[in-house]
Design a protein around this nucleic acid. Structure first.
Lengths: 373, 373
DNA sequence: AATTAGCACTCGACTCTGATGAGTGCTAAC
DNA sequence: GTTAGCACTCATCAGAGTCGAGTGCTAATT
């Protein structure tokens, strides 16, 4: 049965629908073509199987016979929206077909209050530790959508400094700890050619905390360079060393990021991944997080709403047959990170997109929370 | 072909071999019984299939016919060392059989110099960040053994304090950051009923750094309680609050731990896990790390050498058919954590045990490294 | 008494077969 | 333009037959 639909349209025009095919004339999709395409897709999303002409003519309110549907389907196949796994099977959508569906046909389903409540409960849990918050977020996404949930950490560069601290671990080895206003902690060990006492390091800390107060960390490097030009600094060993160390630190750590992926095992429940070899490749990709991080990074800078990347579009061949629904979360005007759901191409988009959107909104709201001094 | 063996014996007597079965008389394994059992196991470990009597009589240097072997195998089955997947198949070892093999039959294979070099190279990489070190350790274990590699982090309680730091995040919210001498960083957000200024928190930090200097963190709670008894503290608001906060912190964070699991996808290569449902259950167990942590914790306190836990023995039913080879690593006399390899029951123990042992030794050595002031 | 050759038997794995049915494309009639 | 009808395709499934690895038992051999 077709789920009841609501009448809001998606805004994801990331990849425009090509209604013009190469040199061909305009290939217009008639109203009926679209209805059939939509029917095929919704049915396939729910069943996972190829769908045949009879099913469509019977189950969806089109008042034409299966033969007519067959003709339409043949047209849609020719235009590249549908494909046939083998001659005597029904049709399944191509990525192009899905893309068109997402951009022009799909209508969101209103979220149930129960779902909203679950998400709120998961995120608003008292414990206000950012790490935990992000982890809980990816967990609830995976639970609710029955796929893998993913959350990209905020980059340091998109946050403000709360405190920076240098600690002498041993000779010529310093640990730098940076806490952002949002409660993110980042620490690295730095090898430094000179040996510096803890006392002196404490001074560096105080100096830099002053210097970088209220500077968005993305601008920190500039600020440091600027300061390095100043005369009083040029000739003061303390200042100049403090600046050199911190420049070195920011150089390598500002753009690092990490992700949480939860519920990978949910993917194993999808019949399309019952092929072990295929699944292995996908899980392997998840193990080496860097590729996924790069992918999410890319979506971060692209738009402000929900985005969908289908298989090919990811340009990662390990992710053939995989789809990513993502949305950035933010604090005020700055985008912090991205969260989303990873699953097969055949996902219940009309249900999951609102979930992702809502979760991103709620997370942004929590980030916003007044700095309550 | 049987790999060439070296002549050192395993010390893993974790689960004693039961040569006495219930009320029965002594069931002695003759020399030949043992040879056959060993042959079955080595063959099965390398092929993965049930092995038949003919294979054994031909391929392993026993100078008896297959018929004799059959008789022996029937005996071994009766005694519970072997089992038959179905009537007309060969035999595979039971867990009891494997246990006996591990405890009394198996001989280690000498590690190749190449393996040693690889491990050294992976661990001794310049970057001296503990997190990275542990991650690299579990990665090299998984690579070398073609199974999942796992490393349990050191507990705070087994390290010494380098520095403790309190940072005011917002009203009634404090971040506690603790750095251990080994370079481990632990941070938590604490909700506290009173609001405390950063200035005051700095004082707490200095006070506690003094108080806990050179105290092993496992003893920190005692030390704090002791201090709380002192008169000068009882009536000093600053001291007493600092102590209460830190007590609260240690209460909840001393025993927390985490693990790195790398190379989970290697498990998918084992034919025994080609069943998707089975694999799903195992990966699910890995996703919720707490159970694995508890399991590793248990082995931590049990012995100082390499230990092996076979399926049943783990008392986790999700880990049926799974085997863990682990060894603690240490710093001086204190056990820090555990590292190991997780794979199917049918692993190449004679090769992997030395690898785990060597890696644990090397990691311990790196932990040892002089505190180089 | 232990070992072995021989043999009947078991059973999973594989192949071949035909039946089934979902689904198609095409054509001619409406 | 739509539809009924029909021949055709092809994945899937069940059943039958074959193969071969491996067993257990027995009787002969050492």
């Amino acid at each position: 049965m077709r789920p009841s639909l609501e009448c809001r349209r998606t805004e994801t025009h990331l990849y425009g629908v090509e209604l013009y095919e190469g040199d061909d004339a305009v290939t217009e999709l008639t109203k009926r073509d679209q209805q059939v395409l939509e029917a095929v897709i919704t049915d396939h999303i729910h069943s996972g199987d190829p769908v045949g002409s009879r099913t469509i003519s019977k189950r969806y309110g089109l008042k034409v016979s299966s033969a007519t549907i067959r003709n339409v389907m043949a047209d849609l196949e020719e235009m590249g929206f549908l494909q046939q796994p083998h001659t005597s099977a029904g049709r399944i959508p191509t990525e192009k077909g899905l893309r068109f569906y997402l951009d022009s046909l799909m209508q969101f389903r209103e979220m149930e209050e129960g779902e909203r409540r679950l998400i709120r409960k998961a995120l608003e849990e008292t414990q206000q530790d950012i790490k935990g918050l992000l982890q809980r977020t990816s967990r609830i996404l995976s639970r609710l959508c029955k796929q893998a949930g993913v959350v990209l950490w905020p980059r340091l560069s998109s946050t403000h400094l709360k405190q920076i601290e240098f600690i002498r671990l041993r000779r010529q080895q310093i640990m730098v700890i940076l806490i952002s206003k949002s409660g993110l902690v980042h620490h690295t060990v730095l090898d430094w050619e000179e040996d510096i006492t803890q006392d002196e390091l404490d001074k560096y800390g105080r100096y830099l905390n002053d210097l970088l107060e209220d500077v968005p960390l993305g601008k920190a490097k500039e600020r440091i360079l600027e300061e390095m030009q100043k005369e009083k600094v040029l000739f003061d060993q303390l200042y100049s060393r403090a600046l050199r160390i911190s420049r070195h630190f920011f150089q390598f750590n500002l753009e690092k990021s990490d992700i949480y992926i939860e519920g990978q095992t949910n993917l194993l429940n999808n019949p399309e991944f019952s092929d072990v070899e295929r699944m292995r490749r996908i899980l392997e990709t998840f193990e080496d997080k860097s590729r996924i991080i790069r992918l999410l990074d890319k979506t971060l800078n692209m738009s402000s709403g929900v985005q969908i990347i289908l298989g090919q579009e990811s340009e990662l061949e390990e992710l053939q047959g995989i789809s990513l629904i993502s949305s950035p979360y933010r604090k005020g005007d700055t985008l912090l990170g991205v969260l989303g759901v990873i699953g097969p191409l055949r996902m219940d988009y009309s249900r999951i997109i609102p979930v992702v959107e809502f979760t991103a909104g709620l997370l942004s709201q929590l980030m916003e929370e007044p700095e309550d001094y």
